Simulated scan of single mutants.
Amino acid sequence: MSAFPLASTVRKAAWLAGGVAASGASALAYGCFIERNLFSVREEIVRVLPAGSVPLRVLHLSDIHFVPGQDRKVRWLQGLADLEPDLVVNTGDNLSHLQAVPPVLEALKPVMRFPGVFVPGSNDYYAPVLKNPFTYFTGPSKHKRTPDELPFGSLFGAFREAGWRDLTNTGTVMDLAGLRLNFSGVDDPHLKRDRYQGFRDLDDADSTGGTAVPAPEVKIGVAHAPYQRVLNQFTGGGADIILAGHTHGGQVCIPGYGALVSNCDLPTWQAKGLTSWAHGGRRVPLNVSAGIGTSRFAPVRFACRPEAVLLTLTARDS
């Protein structure tokens, strides 16, 4: 038998392997240098307000993971103020570097003039660590060593000074746009720091400063990581809508399929976007942001553009 057919087969295999390697390198380059900077605004309409309510525009920000020098991200974040939201909800992981607080506050300054609420994420408390990315396929990420603590106190202090309400394992009530917004938030479930306190009882005069309830109530659950135990608590507590982040939308997805991981126990098909969560006979809209940034040790996105989310809450009968 001639050796030439074998040689031809080897050459074809080599060409195929080379093509696959080149395609992989191109995809990696695209994800590292292009898609992770293709910032977008996803818009959703959610019919959750009481009958007769005017629309409420909510800007949902999550997982900024700021690193000094990200000037393009700064300009884009500052431009979000042009959306003129009624409310900003920040679901954590603002930082990814010890020196990130001043520039991220400069980036968020224009939107901090609007009413807002926030909860912490793990990368507000601790700097990311270098790890094997394939470990995400074995379950939610864990720290193998004690990470560096980030200056979260100055970050959260600036948020509070701007008037944003801190929902760390607590709730608050805000009168806005003819509505009484009843928030319940938790500390980061990914770090197991969540302690659900429930929604305020607005029939209790002490919970509203001794005044009667002047407007229809809307209950909003807010968490960084959408673990099922927290979603069940919010849903069972009567939430009308739940907002979360953490998943990065899977960060590296398969076109036409979606996320391979959610980095928590949330089903991967719910790793980003507006879906719903069912528990105890109730079904509640759930918005999970794909996030704005990445860990500085994994600066890549593929088939999962970075996003802020503009939710227009409207009346159920509209």
Results as ranks from 00 to 15, higher is better:
residue 38 L to C: 08
residue 108 L to G: 10
residue 279 H to R: 12
residue 228 Q to Y: 05
residue 212 A to G: 14
residue 195 R to Q: 13
residue 268 T to C: 07
residue 157 G to M: 06
residue 210 G to V: 07
residue 25 A to I: 13
residue 205 A to P: 14
residue 23 S to T: 13
residue 150 L to P: 03
residue 38 L to G: 08
residue 224 H to M: 09
residue 7 A to I: 11
residue 64 I to G: 00
residue 291 G to F: 02
residue 169 N to G: 03
residue 5 P to Q: 13
residue 91 T to L: 03
residue 275 T to G: 01
residue 139 G to Y: 11
residue 297 F to P: 02
residue 313 L to T: 13
residue 245 G to Q: 07
residue 295 S to V: 10
residue 78 Q to Y: 00
residue 266 L to W: 01
residue 264 C to L: 08
residue 215 A to V: 03
residue 227 Y to E: 05
residue 287 N to D: 15
residue 232 N to P: 00
residue 286 L to Q: 08
residue 268 T to P: 02
residue 16 L to S: 11
residue 46 V to A: 11
residue 244 A to W: 02
residue 201 D to A: 08
residue 148 D to G: 01
residue 212 A to E: 11
residue 183 F to W: 05
residue 4 F to R: 15
residue 243 L to W: 01
residue 264 C to F: 15
residue 106 E to S: 15
residue 134 F to M: 12
residue 57 R to D: 09
residue 266 L to V: 11
residue 53 S to M: 06
residue 142 K to Q: 14
residue 52 G to N: 09
residue 259 A to S: 13
residue 203 D to W: 13
residue 266 L to H: 09
residue 171 G to A: 04
residue 24 G to W: 12
residue 79 G to C: 11
residue 274 L to N: 03
residue 105 L to I: 06
residue 247 T to E: 05
residue 181 L to C: 06
residue 27 A to T: 01
residue 263 N to F: 05
residue 267 P to G: 03
residue 25 A to T: 12
residue 286 L to K: 02
residue 108 L to D: 03
residue 290 A to V: 05
residue 296 R to P: 07
residue 187 D to V: 06
residue 64 I to Q: 02
residue 59 L to G: 04
residue 259 A to Y: 05
residue 293 G to A: 13
residue 317 D to Q: 11
residue 316 R to C: 11
residue 158 A to S: 08
residue 271 A to F: 01
residue 173 V to P: 14
